[in-house]
C-alpha cells in the first residue's frame, strides 16, 4: 500500500510541471497582455500615455522578458517564496486576493460533495433494489428535473423564496456586519447559516446524475454470480445486499471524487455570481476577461493542483477498498 502511494506521488511531479506550463502558455495565448488592455483603457479615458512610461511599466511587470523567463520567475517565486505574483487589476499579491476565496470555494465544494453522496446513494440503492417500483419512477422523474433545470435558476428561486417568506437576503456567505471582518466565532456561525444555500444548489445538480449512476451500477452488480453464491449460502437478503453488491457498486464511484471536485468548483461559478458569494468563480471570470495573467494563472494552477490531489486521494481510497487494485490488478 505504501509502495503504491509512493509510486503515485512520484508520478505526480511530471504531471504538475506539465500542467503549470500548459496553464502559463494558455494565459499568454490571447493577443496583447494586461498592459495593452490597460493602455487602451487610459487612452479611451483621454489620458495620454508616453512611450517611456509604457516601457517603464513593461519592465516593472517583467513583460519585456521572453516568455520562458517569465515562466521560470513565476515558478521560482511560487516554490521558494509562496509568491504567486501580483494581480495587475487589484494591485495586490495574488495570495491576498484569492486566499480566503479558495478556502471558501473548497468548503462549498466539499460540503456539496457530501450532500450529493448522502442524498444520492441511498436513493440510487433504493431505486435499484426496488426497480420499477413507484418510488423508483418518482425519483427518476425528480432526478431528470434536477438534471434539466440550470443551477443558477434554482439559486434565484431559493433566494427569492427565502426573501419573500422571511425578509432575509441570503445572498452572500456572511451577514453584512461580518463582511470584510477578520474570522470570529460569530462569523463562522453566520457562514454556516448561509452556506447551505449554495451547497444545496450546487449539490442538487450532481445528485440527479449520481442517483442514475448508483442505480445503474447496482443493477449491474445485482445480477452477478457472486450475489447468487451468497444467496445460495443462506445469507439474509439485507445483509447480502450491503456486504456484496452495494459495496462493489460504490467502489467505482469513489474514483469519481477526483474529477467531481473541479467540476463542482467551475460549475458553481454562475451560482456564485448569482448568490454574490466571495468565492473564486466571479474573480476567475473577471481575471480572465481582463488578462490579469498572474491572477488567472495562479487560480488555474491552484485548482488544477487541487484536482490532481483529489484524484490522488480517490485513487488511494479505491486501492484501499478494492484489493484487485491494491495488488496490481488481475493476474489472468
Amino acid at each position: 500500500m505504501l509502495n503504491y502511494i509512493g509510486h503515485r506521488l512520484l508520478q505526480l511531479i511530471p504531471l504538475l510541471i506539465a500542467i503549470s506550463i500548459i496553464i502559463f502558455v494558455i494565459i499568454q495565448l490571447p493577443p496583447g497582455n494586461y498592459l495593452t488592455t490597460y493602455i487602451q483603457q487610459l487612452e479611451l479615458s483621454g489620458t495620454a500615455v508616453n512611450q517611456s512610461e509604457v516601457l517603464n511599466l513593461q519592465h516593472q511587470y517583467g513583460l519585456d522578458q521572453p516568455v520562458y523567463v517569465q515562466y521560470f520567475i513565476w515558478m521560482k517565486n511560487i516554490l521558494f517564496h509562496w509568491d504567486f505574483g501580483n494581480s495587475f487589476q487589484w494591485q495586490e499579491p495574488v495570495t491576498k486576493v484569492i486566499g480566503d476565496r479558495i478556502g471558501l470555494t473548497m468548503l462549498i465544494a466539499i460540503f456539496s460533495l457530501i450532500f450529493t453522496w448522502v442524498i444520492a446513494i441511498p436513493i440510487g440503492i433504493y431505486s435499484a433494489v426496488r426497480q420499477y417500483s413507484i418510488f423508483d419512477y418518482i425519483f427518476t422523474f425528480i432526478g431528470y428535473i434536477g438534471l434539466a433545470v440550470p443551477n443558477f435558476l434554482i439559486a434565484l428561486v431559493i433566494v427569492f423564496y427565502v426573501f419573500d417568506h422571511t425578509g432575509l437576503a441570503i445572498s452572500g456567505l456572511f451577514a453584512p456586519e461580518y463582511v470584510g471582518q477578520p474570522w470570529s466565532w460569530g462569523k463562522i456561525v453566520s457562514m454556516l447559516e448561509r452556506i447551505w444555500v449554495p451547497v444545496v444548489i450546487v449539490g442538487t445538480a450532481g445528485t440527479a446524475g449520481l442517483i442514475r449512476t448508483t442505480r445503474a451500477m447496482l443493477l449491474d452488480e445485482l445480477g452477478k454470480q457472486y450475489v447468487i453464491t451468497a444467496r445460495a449460502k443462506g445469507v439474509a437478503e439485507k445483509k447480502l445486499l450491503f456486504k456484496y453488491p452495494i459495496r462493489l457498486a460504490i467502489n467505482p464511484l469513489v474514483s469519481t471524487i477526483g474529477w467531481t471536485l473541479p467540476a463542482l468548483i467551475s460549475g458553481s461559478a454562475i451560482v456564485e455570481i448569482v448568490l454574490n458569494l466571495p468565492t473564486t468563480g466571479p474573480v476567475l471570470l473577471n481575471a480572465l476577461m481582463n488578462q490579469d495573467m498572474y491572477l488567472a494563472g495562479s487560480f488555474l494552477l491552484i485548482l488544477s493542483v487541487l484536482t490532481v490531489i483529489g484524484t490522488l486521494i480517490s485513487d488511494i481510497l479505491l486501492a484501499w477498498i478494492d484489493p484487485r487494485i491494491r495488488f496490481g490488478g488481475m493476474e489472468e
Partner: peptide, 9 residues
C-alpha cells in the same frame, strides 16, 4: 472467478 466476491477474502 465470478462466483466469489472479488473484494472479500
Amino acid at each position: 472467478m465470478k462466483a466469489f466476491s472479488p473484494v472479500h477474502t
